[in-house]
C-alpha cells in the first residue's frame, strides 16, 4: 500500500481520499417535527390537558364519535377539538354546534397533520378551560401514523363497513394505537361478514396490547367504555404530572 501508485485508495476510503468527508449523523429524520411535538406535549402537560389523536380512514366516524362524546360527557369533561381536513369547515361546524370549542386546520393537499400545524392551532384555543383536547387527524390510514403531534394517546377507529382485516393491511397505523375502537357496530346485523374477533386478532398479531372496544356513536351502544377510558386517561395524566420526576416534567 503506497501513496505513489494510488493502491492505498480502496472502495472504503475513496471518498475521503478525494477530499470528501463522510459524516455520521444517526439522527431521527423527523427530529424537527418531534421537537415541536415535545414542545406541544409540554404545553398540554402544563395545562393538565389530555391530548388524544384520533386517526382512521375517511368516514369511519371520528366526527360522529366526537359529537356523541360531547353529548355524553358534556357535564363531566370539558373538551376541545382541533379538526384536520384537506378542505371545508364542515366538521368544525358540526362540533361547534355541540357547544365545543373547535379550530379547523385545512391542510390543502397535505395528507396528514404535523406537530407544527397543531402548534399553530393551539394558539387559537384556550387550554386552561379544558380536560381533553382531541385532534381529529386527516382521514387516512397511512400517513398520519408517522407524525408525532404531541398527543398523549393515539386512538385508531375501524368502522364495520370497512372490513375486519384493516389492521393487517395498515399495520403501521394500528400498531401505533393505544386504543382501537370498532365503530358503527349498529350495522353489525347487516354486515355479519365483519368478524370482531378477527379484527382483534389482527391487532394482536401486531404485538399491540391496546384495549379494543366496540361501539356505535349513533345508537350509543358501548360509549360508556370509551367514556371511562377518557376519564381514566385524564386522571392518570394528572396523577403522573403531580409526581415530580428527574426531568421535572
Amino acid at each position: 500500500m503506497c501513496d505513489t501508485c494510488g493502491c492505498n485508495v480502496t472502495l472504503a476510503n475513496r471518498e475521503l481520499a478525494e477530499g470528501k468527508q463522510a459524516t455520521q449523523v444517526l439522527g431521527n429524520l423527523l427530529q424537527v417535527n418531534d421537537d415541536q411535538a415535545l414542545h406541544n406535549r409540554v404545553h398540554f402537560n402544563g395545562h393538565g390537558v389530555l391530548s388524544v389523536n384520533l386517526m382512521s380512514s375517511p368516514g369511519a366516524g371520528k366526527t360522529a364519535l366526537l359529537e356523541a362524546t360531547a353529548e355524553l360527557l358534556g357535564n363531566e369533561l370539558r373538551i376541545g377539538v382541533i379538526e384536520g381536513d384537506l378542505e371545508t369547515e364542515n366538521d368544525a361546524e358540526r362540533i361547534r354546534a355541540c357547544g365545543v370549542p373547535v379550530v379547523q386546520i385545512c391542510t390543502g393537499t397535505a395528507c396528514h397533520l404535523d406537530a407544527h400545524m397543531v402548534h399553530d392551532a393551539l394558539h387559537q384555543i384556550d387550554l386552561d378551560g379544558l380536560d381533553v383536547l382531541f385532534v381529529e387527524n386527516v382521514g387516512n390510514l397511512v400517513c398520519p401514523a408517522s407524525f408525532d403531534l404531541g398527543q398523549h394517546r393515539n386512538v385508531a377507529l375501524l368502522s364495520t363497513p370497512e372490513g375486519d382485516d384493516k389492521p393487517a393491511k395498515y399495520p403501521v397505523m394500528f400498531r401505533s394505537a393505544d386504543l382501537v375502537l370498532l365503530t358503527k357496530r349498529d350495522l353489525a346485523p347487516y354486515m355479519p361478514e365483519f368478524d370482531a374477533a378477527k379484527a382483534v386478532s389482527y391487532v394482536r398479531q401486531l404485538g399491540n396490547v391496546a384495549p379494543i372496544l366496540e361501539l356505535s356513536a349513533k345508537s350509543g351502544e358501548g360509549l360508556e367504555g370509551w367514556a371511562s377510558w377518557l376519564k381514566r386517561g385524564v386522571a392518570d395524566l394528572r396523577e403522573n404530572l403531580a409526581v415530580p420526576t428527574a426531568e421535572g416534567a
Binding site: E15, G19, K20, Q21, A22, T23, Q24, V25, L26, G27, N28, L29, L30, S146
Partner: peptide, 12 residues
C-alpha cells in the same frame, strides 16, 4: 427506523 445515518460532505 427512519434515520439519517450519514452524509458525504465536500470541501468541509
Amino acid at each position: 427506523e427512519l434515520m439519517l445515518r450519514s452524509v458525504v460532505l465536500e470541501d468541509a
